[in-house]
Nucleic acid binder design. Structure first.
Length: 107
DNA sequence: TTTCTGACAACAA
DNA sequence: ATTGTTGCCAGAA
């Protein structure tokens, strides 16, 4: 489509590459793509692809480790359930010891 | 077309 | 430290 498709596509590529049991943040992805304040765009892209099971969007959280996007998944705690299933501990919708699970984007 | 909003995060006061 | 505003880009009304 357009050049912007690059941003769109790269976000998807990064999210797809998040390994099992790891997570990353919106800001980190945005910063990797060159726009450190473009974090909202990352969420926007995922919102478009939220129906795509190939995109482990549950592994993307905000910088506090808070599961801000859980409301976009089915049910009330599907996102938390998926993360806990990968061995990530979550308390009060927030990942415990985020840095321990944090994964850095790389293509 | 203009305006507002959105899975966030940084900056200003 | 806390609160409010700004930046990012695209889509919806």
């Amino acid at each position: 489509m357009t050049e912007k498709n690059n941003f769109y596509t790269e976000v998807l590529e990064i999210v797809k590459q998040i390994p099992y049991g790891k997570v990353t943040t919106y800001g980190r992805i945005a910063q990797y793509l060159g726009s450190k304040r473009g974090a909202r765009m990352v969420g926007w892209v995922l919102n478009k692809q939220k129906g795509n099971i190939e995109i482990p969007a549950h592994r993307v959280v905000n910088r506090k480790g808070l599961l801000t996007g859980k409301m976009h998944f089915e049910g009330t705690d599907l996102m938390q359930n998926l993360l806990e299933n990968e061995g990530i501990k979550i308390v009060d919708n927030q990942i415990v010891d985020l840095e321990n699970y944090l994964w850095e984007p790389k293509i």
